[in-house]
C-alpha cells in the first residue's frame, strides 16, 4: 500500500503547498479553535468559515471534489454519536410522531446540538484534509517538532507513518495466505483464524520494534532524539498567517456584535 493514501496531492505545487508546515499547522489549529468556540445558532458564521476554507482549497489547487469526498468520511461517526440527541434532549418540541406504539418527540434544542456537532466536525475535518493534502507528512512532522511538540510524540508519529503500511502489507499477505488455503468452513471457525492472525501480527510487530530499536542503538541512539531541520519562514508565511487570522478575527467580531443572531 502506498503512503499517498495519507498525503495524496501533497506533491502538487501551489501557494498553500509552499507555505511552511508550521504556518499551516498553526492556522489550522486557530481555525478549529475559532470554529469550536462559535455558538451553534450563528448560522451565517458557519457559511463564512466554509467560504474561508473553500478559498484555501481554491488557492491550493486541490480537486474540490476530492476534499469534499474525503471530508464526508467523518459523517457516519458523527451521526452514530449524535443522531439520537434530538429525540432525547428536553425542550420545546419541534415535531411529534407516532410510530406504531411509541410517540417520538424531536426538540429544537436537540436539533441544534446535532447541527452543532455535525457542522463543526465536518468543517474541522475539512481543514485537516487541506492541511494533510498540502503538506508532506514528513514535513509536517518537522514542523510539529519545531513547534516544540515533545520529540517522543514526534517520533511515535514518524514510526507510525513509516510502519503503518508495512504492517498493513503484512496483514494483506497473511490474509492472502489464509484465503489460498481456505475452502469454506463455518464462520465461527474463520473467526478463530482471524484471532490467530491478529495475534501473529501483534507478535511480528513487537519483534520488529525490537529489531528497529537495535538498529537505532547501533547507530548511536542514546534515548535523545535529534534531527536536522531545514525549515525557514518566508514572507509568504507572514502574509498568509496575517490574512487568515484577520479573516478569523472578522468572523469573530461579527459574532460578538451579534449580527444575524
Amino acid at each position: 500500500m502506498k503512503h499517498g493514501f495519507l498525503d495524496q496531492y501533497s506533491d502538487l505545487d501551489s501557494l498553500i503547498h509552499r507555505l511552511d508546515p508550521r504556518t499551516k499547522a498553526i492556522t489550522t489549529l486557530a481555525f478549529i479553535l475559532a470554529l469550536v468556540l462559535t455558538p451553534p445558532t450563528r448560522w451565517y458564521a458557519f457559511a463564512l468559515y466554509f467560504a474561508l476554507i473553500a478559498l484555501v482549497v481554491l488557492l491550493s489547487r486541490l480537486p474540490p471534489l476530492y476534499v469534499l469526498k474525503r471530508s464526508l468520511v467523518v459523517v457516519p461517526f458523527v451521526l452514530v454519536i449524535a443522531i439520537f440527541i434530538p429525540f432525547f434532549k428536553q425542550g420545546e418540541v419541534a415535531g411529534s410522531y407516532n410510530i406504531w406504539l411509541w410517540q417520538v418527540n424531536v426538540t429544537y434544542s436537540g436539533l441544534i446540538v446535532l447541527w452543532n456537532v455535525t457542522i463543526k466536525a465536518w468543517l474541522s475535518v475539512m481543514s485537516m484534509i487541506v492541511l494533510s493534502s498540502t503538506t508532506k507528512f514528513s514535513e509536517l512532522l518537522k514542523g510539529l517538532e519545531r513547534l516544540r511538540l515533545p520529540l517522543v510524540m514526534v517520533m511515535i508519529l514518524s514510526f507510525m507513518y513509516r510502519y503503518m503500511f508495512v504492517v498493513v502489507d503484512e496483514a494483506l499477505r497473511m490474509k492472502r495466505a489464509r484465503d489460498s488455503r481456505n475452502f469454506g468452513g463455518k464462520h465461527i471457525w474463520q473467526l478463530k483464524t482471524v484471532g490467530n492472525m491478529i495475534g501473529a501480527l501483534f507478535l511480528r510487530s513487537y519483534e520488529r520494534g525490537e529489531r528497529v530499536y537495535a538498529a537505532m542503538v547501533a547507530r548511536g541512539f542514546d534515548g535523545n532524539p535529534r534531527t536536522l531541520s531545514h525549515l525557514r519562514f518566508q514572507m509568504l508565511d507572514l502574509y498568509f498567517t496575517a490574512c487568515f487570522l484577520t479573516s478569523l478575527a472578522m468572523i469573530g467580531t461579527t459574532i460578538l456584535l451579534g449580527w444575524g443572531a
Binding site: 507513518y161 541512539f221 536536522l228
Partner: peptide
C-alpha cells in the same frame, strides 16, 4: 541489519542516512 525495513525507520531517506551522524 538483514531486513532493511528494520534499518530504515525514518520518514525520508535523508533523515535515515543522517540519523547516525546526528547522534554522533
Amino acid at each position: 541489519f538483514q531486513d532493511p525495513e528494520d534499518q530504515l525507520f525514518s520518514p525520508t531517506v535523508f533523515d535515515d542516512v543522517a540519523f547516525g551522524p546526528i547522534n554522533m
